[in-house]
Structure formats: structure tokens, C-alpha cells
Simulated assay, not measured.
Amino acid sequence: MTQSVPMTREGHQRLQEELKKLIREERPKVVQDIAEARGHGDLSENAEYDAAKERQGFIEGRIQEINDKLSRAQVINPAELDTDKVVFGARVTLFDVDSGNEVTYQIVGEDEADLKFGKISVTSPVGKALIGHKLDDEVTVKIPSGLKTYEVIDIKYE
């Protein structure tokens, strides 16, 4: 049984755009680079050829990976969710009990996670710990530096 890959609409769209770029731009360019490097003669000592072949392998692998994820994608629109619990797609504001700081995270798929933009993976320790909790719940998360306690102070689905 294949496991679905949860993602937001934005994450799904970003993967589709990356796939288009790889197929339309990167793949033809690397094929051209390989042909050009072949023209330089002896392939056994041709660093340009080796580099281009390695790049081609990376591009083809990434195309396969994206195709696989898109074929198993379960696109979730947080705005359509009607729940009072933290679920995939939620934008959750937490009060850090230890430091007194507030932090807001959106729980997204693995490919979309980017801490700089407040997006954490549903499979991350904090993401996993938050799932299923409600407003005003205290959540203790095991992180590399120990235990961290948060209070859920806001949950939004946008």
C-alpha cells in the first residue's frame, strides 16, 4: 500500500513548478553539456563529462522523486478544515512556558518545511507533538536539548 504525502496547495504547486523547470530547462541543458563534453575527446579523463553525467543523474533522480510525491499527494486546503484541534495545515501560535516568548508555526509537509518562514514538518518533533491538541493545551516536546513546554494560544486555518 502506498502512503499518501500530505501537502498544502502551495507546496503542491511548488513541486509542480520545480518538475517543469527540471524537465524543460535543466534536463535539456545537461544533455547539451554532455554532448559538448563528449566533443572534447577522451572520456576517461574528462572532468566536464563526469560532472555533467553526475548532474544528469541528480536531475533524473529528482524528477522521479517529485513524480512519485505528486502521484501520492494528498492536497489539503487548511481554509476548508473545520476543527478545533491542531491538524495538518494549521497555523499554531504557541507560548513558550520556559522563555515567555510566543512563536507561530504552520504545520506542513516535509518538502514545504522551512523554519525561516515558520513552516514546520508534520513529522518534526514539534509538529508531531502538536497534532490533536486544542486551544489552551500544554504540550511538552522532546527536542535535542531536552524538554520544551508550550501552551497552544491560537489555532488558525487559512
Rank of each mutant, 00 (worst) to 15 (best):
V141A: 05
V92C: 10
M1Y: 13
L43F: 08
D84Y: 01
A73V: 02
T93D: 02
V108E: 12
V126S: 12
G39I: 03
I63H: 01
V152Y: 10
V103W: 06
I59W: 05
L81Q: 15
I59V: 12
Q64D: 10
G146M: 08
E45I: 08
V108M: 11
N67E: 07
T8Q: 11
E80N: 12
G41Y: 08
N101D: 15
G57V: 06
A113Q: 09
I66Q: 03
V141M: 10
Q32D: 11
L135K: 13
R55M: 07
T149L: 00
V92K: 14
T149I: 04
K53L: 12
I143Q: 07
R27P: 00
D114H: 13
Q64T: 08
A79L: 06
M1H: 14
K148L: 11
R55I: 00
I155K: 03
G127F: 04
V30I: 07
P144A: 11
M7R: 03
D136L: 14
P144D: 09
V75T: 09
V75G: 00
K156I: 08
I66E: 00
T149G: 03
G39P: 04
T83N: 11
R9L: 14
I66G: 01
E45D: 14
I107K: 05
L70M: 04
E138K: 10
E138V: 01
G39Y: 09
Q56W: 06
A73F: 06
V5N: 09
P28A: 09
G57R: 09
V31E: 12
T93F: 05
V31I: 14
E17G: 00
I120H: 03
I23V: 08
P6Y: 03
D82S: 12
I131L: 15
S71L: 00
K128P: 02
H133N: 15
K20C: 03
K128T: 12
V108D: 10
D84V: 03
V122R: 13
E112M: 08
D33T: 01
S145Y: 11
N77C: 07
L135P: 12
N101L: 10
R55K: 13
F117S: 13
F58H: 08
E25Y: 07
D84W: 00
R38H: 11
I131M: 15
F117C: 03
R62A: 01
K116T: 13
L130T: 11
V86Y: 05
E151W: 02
A51V: 13
A90S: 07
Y150L: 01
E48C: 00
E25A: 09
H133W: 07
A113S: 06
R27V: 06
H12Y: 14
D82A: 13
I66F: 01
E25Q: 12
R38D: 09
D82K: 15
V122E: 15
K148Q: 13
T104P: 09
G132R: 01
K116F: 08
Y157C: 09
S145W: 07
Q3P: 06
E102R: 15
K53T: 11
K156G: 07
K142Y: 02
S121N: 05
P125V: 05
D68A: 04
